[in-house]
Design a protein around this nucleic acid. Structure first.
Length: 923
RNA sequence: GCGUCUAUAGCUCAGUUGGUUAGAGCGCUACCUUGACAUGGUAGAGGUCCCCUGUUCGAGUCAGGGUAGACGCACCA
């Protein structure tokens, strides 16, 4: 084995073997355990959030697979309608073409070509992360099977009246030329203006002042509204306004919606371009004047001189004209929420179009129930509040998109625009007895990508066919995802799965935190703080990193800032930490917190941890390979340390499993880390040396220790495997044969997970080793503080030695002399104070290191003084407690006893230290 | 406006139903190239648990009120 762990030498080969061996498929035996991969965009590449969530899913999957469960990780990608179409369109644009030049069919072919070429990026990156989904079942939302499911759902919902078509105001993206759902619109506060305009009464008897943030919409005003009880305007209701610029006459109406306290108490109503106005318009039967073309330029309904102008250019002209004609009262600065498309960044326009909707109310009810009854559980639980809040206020879902890439809506129209819905044209014709003479055209629109994603839990398992997988793996065990898509995806999956299978899609929903940068900022391209998980695995030099972070930057000053920041944070680029270290980092950071600040220091720390494990294994192998490890029988005599490490391992194992069952990956990985480094490496390996290296050890003793070394390590590797698959496999291949396990053609990933073995739990041994440790640490302490070289052998005296101490001395003498570097231990007779010494306590027993020639009097006095001071402080606190009648009368007895014992112990230490202090100061 | 969350060591974070002398990793200091490992070892320093008030024998933990910050939802022209 190399002296340091080099992940890049092993990972890819290892993964290839697993995948080729078919280890990722469900076994068909045991309890079903299933995780659905939230399908990443086929356009996407792996970001830190994916890497994090995939680590967690894979840890769960590997754990359950090793536990013997029938384990399926259902994976796949989604077609990401808008995103993918944008990618391919951009390529066309670069060639000076648009999708319209190609036409729909040719364009879609192009998209498929693109997918064939580049669609595998993210799945190959997942392989680098060591994930073990069943790639043979990999699904894509545009696959024929899933498309059939989409059609089936659409038709069924339509037949039940739960899908309908209607003309309504929608969120229109004027750049992408499509409707988007509420969730795809981000409302950010931006600086704008409030324009106050004078609207004269038609009869010339006065005027009203209205205010707006969008003056250009005044062209489409069809009323001015006031509150019905507003004394100022009551008498004007029913009168008419002569609209500036157009001169159109509109009514003054009364509506409760108006807040008389706000502004002038008069509101201009533009039903075709504002969601609130739209509602008012419907109530009052107002005309709806659409002013815009699909790309938000003024259309034929605007005055001729303004037609064809972009909405923002038109705004300027209109304001200028209002001003010139004396209609503009004032312009105030105003902060307002501007709706922008989450993909395009364009200002979203409320726009009157025909769209398809899902009536969600009846679907929402069972989905709410599923969480309220506890059938589905959010972890952490609080997220159910977010879920309820949205579900109780859920709006009908606009599912049509004016795109080409996606599932085309299975609806056909005849020449009179009658609509027929069916699985295909033939079915439609048959169902409605439409002869061949009737010309039908299919709806041009496609469905929202989330519509197909909502079917993921059952469509990927074969629905609408009745498959055994549907039976076995619905509901799945846990969904691991981020809070940002609870509405987009999680809620919709629950609704759809309940509706079409009658079952819930998953039992647990584990909501992970969001990975942020080391300062808690969201990782984003524009901030230039994005990390690529693959770069953490393989490493990247500074130039490469800079190039990546500044590529495609529109603003040069931004690129400069990013360069500076990156140079500062990564002067040497990023080292290659390997997949296991990265995975361990993610696991260790997966606490209940909703934000996770990614700390490079921790990756490095866990890289070191991998190296530690590697070297510990080297040590084990050096001492066991080609030697008798008892794999083929032979008497085994286990040392105190051997029995201790087995007992410790049982505890660690139990802890690990408890934490995993509670999705506390941070605690689980901490338990493993602590055991490996602080128990196995720091103590056990050291304690094995005296046995292995001593001529006094019998064959049975050496065999016993070798057996323990190799078997504890082997068990530990299996325990760690779910989190760190590669390093554990690599080491296991060499260690397992020494345990009598045949590894040829096998893998750690299909070995059973370790089981707690009650016969190996031993609290007496644990206490014995605690005693031994405190003995050794006591001596190291004195060495450390008295500047005595760790290499210098010491002779120590023991005072106040009990029978138990004697027994322990007896069984651990060899360990003591080696680990504390002692050349002699002698026990003082009762009453014999011994020479002036530095002392350490092991329980009530005192270890004396004679000062002569070794220890400076003042230094020792200082050490004692410091210890006394600390003890005094703690003692007075405890004494205070015990002197308090309230405490003694009201606290539970166990607590009081504990305090008493604590005090007694401190008093004992105190008096011994006092004694010491006196002896030494008298020297 | 409604809702959710966060505040603990220089940094990143744990801290179970209230009962420890408040922990870990990184960083820092001193010493150590000892034979698995300097990606290491040994020892050590470092905390007003954001503030106030309460409940309690006892509060980092519970309640109320602040302060600072993050997020979600709905928003007035």
């Amino acid at each position: 084995m190399d002296k340091t762990f080099s992940p890049q030498n092993i990972e890819q080969q290892c993964y290839q073997n697993w995948e080729d061996s078919g280890y990722f498929q469900a076994s068909g035996k045991g309890e079903p355990y299933c995780i659905l991969l939230p399908p990443p965009n086929v356009t996407g590449s792996l970001h830190m959030g994916h890497a994090f969530q995939h680590t967690i899913m894979d840890a769960l999957i590997r754990y359950h697979r090793m536990k013997g469960d029938n384990t399926l990780w259902q994976c796949g990608t989604d077609h990401a309608g808008i995103a993918t179409q944008m990618v391919v369109e951009r390529q066309l644009n670069a060639e000076g073409k648009t999708r319209h030049d190609l036409g729909r069919e040719a364009f879609i072919e192009k998209v498929w070509d693109w997918k064939a070429q580049s669609g595998g990026t993210i799945t190959s990156q997942m392989r680098r992360m060591g994930t073990s989904p069943d790639w043979q079942r990999e699904a894509f939302t545009m696959d024929p099977e899933l498309s059939d499911a989409v059609k089936e759902v659409f038709v069924q919902l339509y037949d039940e009246g739960l899908i309908y078509r209607g003309q309504r105001l929608v969120n229109w993206d004027p750049v992408l030329h499509t409707a988007v759902s509420d969730l795809e619109v981000l409302n950010e506060e931006e600086a704008g203006h409030m324009w106050h305009m004078r609207y004269p009464l038609a009869d010339g008897t006065g005027e009203l002042v209205v205010a707006t943030t969008r003056p250009e919409t005044m062209l489409g005003d069809t009323a001015v509204a006031v509150h019905p009880d507003d004394e100022r305007y009551k008498h004007l209701v029913g009168k008419q306004i002569k609209l500036p610029i157009t001169g159109r006459l509109i009514n003054i109406i009364a509506d409760d919606y108006v807040d008389p306290e706000f502004g002038t108490g008069c509101v201009k109503i533009t039903p075709a371009h504002d969601f609130n106005d739209y509602e008012i318009g419907k109530r009052h039967n107002l005309e709806m004047i659409n002013l815009f073309t699909p790309d938000a330029k003024l259309n034929g309904n605007a005055p001729e001189q303004l037609q064809g102008l972009d909405r923002f250019d038109a705004r300027q002209k209109i304001v200028a004209q209002l001003d010139a004609e004396g209609f503009l009262v004032k312009i105030d600065d105003h902060k307002l929420k501007v709706p922008r498309g989450d993909r395009s960044g364009a200002v979203i326009e409320p726009y009157l179009t025909d769209q398809w909707y899902v009536a969600v109310e009846s679907l929402a009810k069972p989905a709410i129930d599923a969480v309220e009854t506890g059938e589905i559980r959010f972890i952490p639980e609080n997220w159910n509040k977010t879920y309820y809040q949205w579900m109780y206020n859920i709006q009908d879902w606009c599912i049509s998109r004016q795109l080409w890439w996606g599932h085309r809506i299975p609806a056909w129209y005849d020449s009179n625009d009658n609509v027929y819905v069916g699985r295909d044209e033939a079915e439609v014709r048959a169902k409605h007895q439409l002869g061949d003479d009737v010309v039908l055209r299919q709806d041009e629109d496609v469905l929202d990508t989330w519509f197909s994603s909502a079917l993921w839990p059952f469509a990927t398992l074969g629905w609408p066919k009745e498959t055994p997988e549907l039976d076995t793996f619905v509901p799945s065990s846990v969904l691991v995802t981020g809070f940002d898509i609870i509405f987009f995806w999680v809620a919709r999956m629950i609704m759809m799965t309940k509706k079409f299978t009658g079952k819930i899609p998953f039992k647990d929903i584990y909501i992970t935190g969001l990975i942020r940068d080391e300062h808690g900022d969201k990782m984003s391209k524009s901030k230039g703080n994005v990390l690529d998980p693959i770069d953490l695995i393989d490493g990247i030099d500074l130039d490469g990193l800079l190039a990546k972070r500044t590529a495609g930057m529109m603003q040069p000053q931004l690129a400069e800032k990013i360069t500076k920041r990156t140079r500062k944070q990564f002067p040497e680029g990023i080292a290659a930490y390997g997949t296991d270290a990265l995975r361990f980092t993610f696991a260790a950071m997966a606490s209940t917190s909703r934000d996770i600040n990614f700390d490079m220091g921790r990756v490095e720390g866990y890289r070191n941890f991998c190296n530690k494990l590697w070297n510990a294994s080297r040590f084990v192998l050096m001492n066991t390979e080609d030697q008798d490890t008892g794999a083929n029988g032979g008497e085994l005599e286990l040392s105190l340390a051997d029995r201790w490490i087995w007992a410790q391992f049982q505890q660690t194992l139990a802890e690990f499993e408890t934490h995993l069952s509670e999705y506390r990956f941070d605690l689980a990985s901490h338990a493993v880390y602590e055991f490996t480094w602080n128990q196995f490496c720091d103590w056990y390996l050291e304690l094995s040396k005296p046995v292995l290296n001593s001529d006094a050890s019998t064959d049975a003793q050496k065999r016993g220790t070798r057996h323990t070394l190799v078997n504890v390590l082997e068990s530990l590797l299996r325990l760690m495997h779910p989190i760190m698959p590669f390093i554990t496999e690599e080491i296991w291949q060499r260690v397992a044969p020494l345990c009598g396990i045949h590894v040829k053609g096998s893998s750690i990933m299909i070995q059973p997970f370790p089981q707690v073995d009650a016969t190996k739990q031993d609290s007496d041994v644990l206490k014995d080793i605690e005693w031994l440790k405190s003995f050794i640490v006591g001596i190291r302490n004195i060495r450390g503080e008295m500047d005595i070289s760790p290499n210098k052998p010491l002779s120590v005296l023991l005072r106040n030695v009990s029978a138990e101490d004697t027994r322990r001395l007896d069984i651990s003498a060899a360990f003591l002399s080696k680990l504390a570097k002692l050349e002699g231990v002698s026990i003082l007779q009762p009453g014999d104070k011994g020479p002036a010494s530095a002392t350490a306590l092991v329980g009530e027993m005192e270890i004396l290191i004679p000062m002569a020639g070794l220890i400076d009097k003042d230094a020792e006095l200082a050490r004692i003084g410091k210890a006394l001071e600390k003890l005094e402080k703690d003692m007075s606190r405890t004494q205070g407690k015990l002197a308090n009648d309230n405490f003694v009368s009201k606290a539970p007895e166990a607590v009081i006893d504990k305090e008493k014992a604590k005090l007694a112990d401190m008093q004992m230490q105190f008096s011994k230290l006092k004694e010491q202090q006196e002896t030494i100061s008298n020297l």
